[in-house]
Design a protein around this nucleic acid. Structure first.
Lengths: 243, 243
DNA sequence: ATTATCTATAGATCTATAGATAATGC
DNA sequence: ATTATCTATAGATCTATAGATAATGC
């Protein structure tokens, strides 16, 4: 529960932890709707308080500043996303269609969370940079789940042998093509139903992951990046620091 | 020159059109840097005026309001993008490698315009909705260039026969995977050089567009939508309006 | 005279807190 | 007595404009 863990890190004047969690959720639930509709900056703390049905004074007992609210909102969204994606991976019943099913379930999560995902794209930049980093880590963790799926399928032979960097990029691609439904929705939803979108994208992604073996030349990469292994874990040959 | 066309639509008190264009560019150039660094809402009109080296009073002779500045900035970015993408398509020397070259050139444009593209993703929502729509149209126009490329290659036999909806989705995918370099740069640039990224993504995209023929089942779609071919072209069974 | 630019500020917010009040538990 | 909540507002902005000044062209 990353959201819970973080709860502790936002300071509060209120002693009762259960109350703190309840009120914070109440506030966050009200805030996220306003952020989605009007954006973070055009939403005032008073509006949030009113929508959450508490006074502005009380609000500030539970959050130190407006940005704290946005951060908790982001944490809750990512927590929900991660739950959904993890479930998607269980639903997938293995076998030849495993990847197709994972994609389908993942895209349905994106569809369901559409407004929230879009909000994260738009508002993350309004967070203090320290929290921006945490939100991005969440994003990466979710991508990691997809990396896991692809790696498993590749090693079990249900996908061609893919080198690690290819797997990583493909996972990012799948994640982002799911997000695309949220941030190009103004166009896509006019012309496609979600089921159409999933069908077309599943076909495209499967091709992207499963073309004939000659399409995946032996790993050209590992130029063994000479020693330094930092927290950033260049766990393979390839990764390279760029300022 | 969409930017120029629009120039006319932003009202101004100043008579000399040449001066208007010069000053507006001067202001927009200063503003975009601030928007990239601090976001639209955290940037004040005074900061913009100072950075553009004019007084706050003068600034408001050239723009009716702060949002106008953001809009002009967006127009200029998209105009530059479109120019770059159009060039990318000329560079591509036809033949078997044509698509790979287009992708490469397009991705290099994304790399060069990285900060600007990201800014559009983050700040479009701050525009009045009428101008939001125009920015999204620009986005669609650029995607349309890619649709054109794919359609040409598919009909000339350099790509398999793809039905229209598949082409459309593939074009969106290419556009968005270029953008991905900008909005996941915080991760990607730590582990990949742009050349690595282009190489991996080109391979993935080519697979996505060119898998064996059995991967593109005969157009399930064309239930011959009774002649009518509109701009929105629900040319097949599927598309459907969603509020 | 007309056009462009500047300074100074009105007017309208908005965040965050101080200090008063109500509710709870001993 | 302690904890939670509220009202009222200090203090700090920020956008956009009014009215004064400088520059330009006839």
């Amino acid at each position: 529960m990353p959201a819970k863990i973080h709860q502790a890190t936002i300071p509060t004047q209120v002693k009762d932890p259960g109350l703190v969690e309840r009120r914070r959720r109440q506030i966050a639930d009200a805030a996220v709707q306003l952020f989605i509709r009007n954006g973070f900056h055009k939403t005032t703390t008073r509006q949030i308080a009113r929508a959450a049905d508490i006074s502005i004074g009380s609000l500030y007992e539970y959050f130190h500043c407006k940005e704290d609210i946005l951060y908790l909102v982001c944490e809750q969204i990512h927590s929900e996303m991660e739950k959904g994606v993890a479930q998607a991976m269980n639903h997938a019943s293995g076998g030849k269609e495993a990847l197709a099913e994972v994609i389908r379930e993942y895209f349905l999560v994106c569809h369901r969370m559409s407004d929230f995902i879009l909000m994260i794209y738009q508002q993350t930049q309004s967070l203090p940079s320290q929290w921006q980093r945490r939100v991005l880590e969440n994003e990466l963790r979710i991508t990691g789940l997809l990396v896991g799926v692809l790696a498993r399928l590749a090693s079990s032979g249900e996908l061609p042998r893919l080198n690690e960097r290819t797997i990583e990029i493909l996972a990012h691609n799948i994640v982002v093509l799911g997000h695309m439904w949220t941030f190009r929705r103004w166009f896509l939803a006019k012309h496609y139903r979600i089921e159409d979108y999933i069908r077309l994208q599943t076909a495209a992604i499967l091709r992207m992951c499963t073309a004939g073996p000659e399409e995946f030349p032996a790993p050209i990469d590992p130029p063994a990046a000479g020693g330094g292994s930092d927290a950033d874990s260049p766990s393979e040959g390839g990764p390279r620091e760029v300022s």
